[in-house]
Amino acid sequence: MPQRLLRLCGGVASMTSQRQAGGDSDNPGGNFKGGLKGNILTPQGWISGVLRFDDGHITAIDGAEVDPDHNSDPYILPGFIDLHVHGGGGKDIMDGGDAVYVISAIHARHGTTSMLATTMTSPLSDLEQALEACGHACRQRRAGTARVLGVHLEGPYINPGKLGAQPDFAQEATLQKVARLSAMAPVKLITVAPEIAGHLDVVRTLSESGMRVQIGHTLGSYEDGVQALEHGASGFTHLFNAMTGFQARAPGMVGAALAHARYSELIPDLLHVHPGAIKTALRAIPRLY
């Protein structure tokens, strides 16, 4: 599939296909001046046709319904939006400085057009260094990079007993702590362990303010998960990983997600999560990403 992929990067089309078609719209599939021709993914499904653009903006999409498995034309997809980006190109968001630009450039080359720069559980000074750089990238996008929409704070407000790959700098969340970091860069998403004392109130207030709150790195019970969702949590961070598992008499945080969540992250690399677990999540959670 990557050899057939045409993607729209920041509203401007770029091509990563073996079929580097030039010329005009009579090409069976590919790009031409002012447009792209191929299998176009739309909100209504796949169509075979032409996507036209002018000055970086899509002006028209024309075509007919198609099953893309029945032809060899390129795929034309919207740019990906990634809500959980720690690094890329040998750099980590926690490096600060220009690292976020290196990361956003490498992700743009692979089809991500917008992203949330994601932090690690770290000392405050390290978090501030990272968020200062992310704030700058949010305000001043560089050519050829994915748009940095804001920050995903994955910690430090997690359970120290479920760190996973996170460093051991977990701490309790307060609204004042979150506000201090949000003043440096727009925090759009935050991962918390809801079972920590005081965190449910934080979840409610942040959710009411418009910030998305996800449940993750948690030793919480099924009941803790349900309560967090009732307090406004929007979903779960990397479902199945770094959270209490499902058992018949103790459904755990995984059970709360499968029974009640509308949204959840999942790492589908077949290393973090078994294929059967992925299929289970797909059947249970309407908006899995």
Rank of each mutant, 00 (worst) to 15 (best):
M1C: 07
P2T: 14
P2C: 14
P2Q: 15
L6I: 15
L8R: 09
G11L: 02
A13H: 10
S17W: 08
Q18D: 15
Q18I: 14
D24G: 15
N27W: 00
G29M: 01
G29V: 07
L36N: 02
K37N: 02
L41P: 01
T42A: 08
Q44V: 10
W46T: 02
S48F: 13
S48E: 13
V50K: 14
V50H: 14
L51T: 12
R52F: 12
F53V: 03
D55Q: 12
D55P: 04
I58H: 00
T59I: 06
G63V: 04
D67I: 03
P68T: 06
I76Y: 06
G79R: 02
F80G: 03
I81D: 00
D82A: 05
V85R: 03
H86K: 09
G87F: 03
K91V: 00
D92C: 09
D95I: 05
G96I: 11
A99L: 00
V102W: 11
V102A: 13
A105L: 11
H110N: 09
H110E: 08
M115H: 00
T119S: 09
P123K: 13
P123A: 13
L124N: 11
S125G: 11
D126A: 14
D126P: 11
A130L: 13
A130M: 14
A133W: 00
C134M: 15
H136A: 15
T145C: 11
R147Y: 11
V148S: 10
L149V: 14
Y157E: 12
I158M: 09
P160R: 15
Q166P: 01
P167A: 03
A170D: 06
A173I: 00
T174C: 04
V178Y: 02
A179R: 13
R180P: 04
R180V: 12
L181T: 01
L181K: 04
A183Y: 05
P186Q: 12
P194E: 05
A197V: 02
G198F: 07
G198D: 07
H199A: 12
H199S: 12
H199Y: 06
L200P: 03
D201M: 12
D201N: 15
V202H: 10
R204E: 11
T205P: 02
Q214I: 10
Q214E: 08
H217Q: 06
L219R: 15
G220P: 01
S221P: 09
G225Y: 06
Q227P: 04
A228E: 05
L229T: 12
E230V: 03
G232C: 03
F236L: 02
T237H: 03
N241V: 08
T244P: 08
T244S: 08
G245I: 08
G245L: 01
G252A: 07
G255Y: 01
A257K: 02
L258N: 02
A261L: 11
Y263H: 10
S264E: 09
E265F: 00
L266S: 02
P268L: 03
A277H: 09
L282H: 07
L282C: 12
A284K: 10
P286L: 04
P286H: 03
Y289T: 11
